[in-house]
Computed example of a mutant assay.
Amino acid sequence: MDQYELIRTGYRVYGKSISELARLTGHCRNTVKKAIRGEPWGYREREHQAFPALGEHLAVIDGWLEGDRDKPCNQRHTARRIYHRLIEEQGFKGSESTVRRYVRLAKMQLGMAGSCTFIPCDPEAGYEGEVDWGGAIALIGGEAQRLKFFCMRSKYSGKHFVRFYPCERQQVFFDGHEQAYAFFGGVFPILIYDNLTAAVRKVMRGKDRQQQEAFSKFKAYYSLDARFIVMESFP
């Protein structure tokens, strides 16, 4: 998650204040406001937020948090626990506030910033949607032509939006989203995709995906949580 997406998601999804996002990212309040308004990101983004006091401990913290993703909430590391482990196991000399600030940022990037709760069995209204391409043959001017159709489906109601296009290029992929948002009257916070080339550059192991740059920016603008189908391998 780049910092443009982090700011917009933190503000719109997790309810973070402008001041808190400025502290977390190291950007000034005006820059944070600019990202929230969706204005172009007009300078080179830093790949990583600098935490010089943590230094080589960053990889250790990231490893602990990554290991927490599949654990029950009451077994995950708190920022305070991480701080004490760093002192006891790594000889850390920095402050607890620095650790807390980095842990908040890291958890947001890992999608662990919200409070833990149960997973409902039924999808919430207006919360999740599914996106995919399909193909069909249509008679146009008396001639059979092969067309592609963009489909977005509400997981709650099962209602579909379908729009036909001559191809599956990225431009029409984005247009399909915008037309679907107008049809449904809003944006689904979570969209589930097959591993479409318009969104995914490379399928990595498990749930990891190397996303197309344009799709990442599109996703950041709408604060989407994009999830991809995991292809199981069978013997």
Results as ranks from 00 to 15, higher is better:
168 E>I: 10
178 E>D: 06
104 R>F: 08
1 M>A: 04
131 V>F: 07
107 K>S: 02
138 A>H: 03
20 E>V: 03
13 V>L: 14
70 D>M: 11
213 E>F: 06
218 F>Y: 14
67 G>D: 09
44 R>D: 05
70 D>Y: 05
29 R>W: 02
131 V>D: 03
137 I>K: 12
23 R>Q: 09
178 E>H: 02
225 D>F: 03
32 V>M: 13
68 D>P: 13
207 K>A: 11
171 Q>F: 11
203 V>L: 08
140 I>W: 04
166 P>R: 15
22 A>S: 13
151 C>P: 01
121 C>P: 00
218 F>P: 07
199 A>E: 02
146 R>G: 03
220 A>V: 13
95 S>L: 14
53 A>Y: 07
27 H>K: 13
187 V>E: 05
163 R>L: 11
188 F>I: 10
100 R>S: 07
48 H>I: 14
158 G>F: 09
49 Q>D: 11
187 V>N: 01
214 A>R: 15
138 A>W: 06
114 G>S: 02
18 I>M: 10
7 I>M: 15
122 D>V: 12
46 R>G: 08
133 W>H: 07
221 Y>T: 01
138 A>L: 15
103 V>Q: 15
151 C>F: 00
111 G>M: 14
220 A>L: 06
57 H>V: 01
165 Y>W: 04
117 T>W: 04
224 L>D: 05
231 M>Q: 09
162 V>W: 11
104 R>G: 01
59 A>F: 10
23 R>K: 07
216 S>V: 12
5 E>F: 01
31 T>E: 14
70 D>W: 04
29 R>E: 02
180 A>L: 01
112 M>A: 03
83 Y>H: 11
110 L>N: 03
48 H>K: 12
83 Y>L: 13
107 K>A: 09
190 I>T: 01
102 Y>S: 05
48 H>N: 07
75 Q>M: 10
79 A>K: 11
63 G>W: 09
107 K>F: 09
37 R>D: 00
192 I>W: 11
231 M>R: 12
72 P>R: 00
37 R>Y: 00
106 A>S: 07
124 E>V: 12
212 Q>E: 11
42 G>H: 06
39 E>I: 02
31 T>I: 06
43 Y>S: 07
228 F>E: 06
89 E>P: 00
14 Y>V: 12
220 A>Q: 02
110 L>K: 09
169 R>M: 10
231 M>G: 08
13 V>W: 08
109 Q>V: 05
34 K>D: 07
235 P>S: 15
225 D>Y: 10
196 L>D: 02
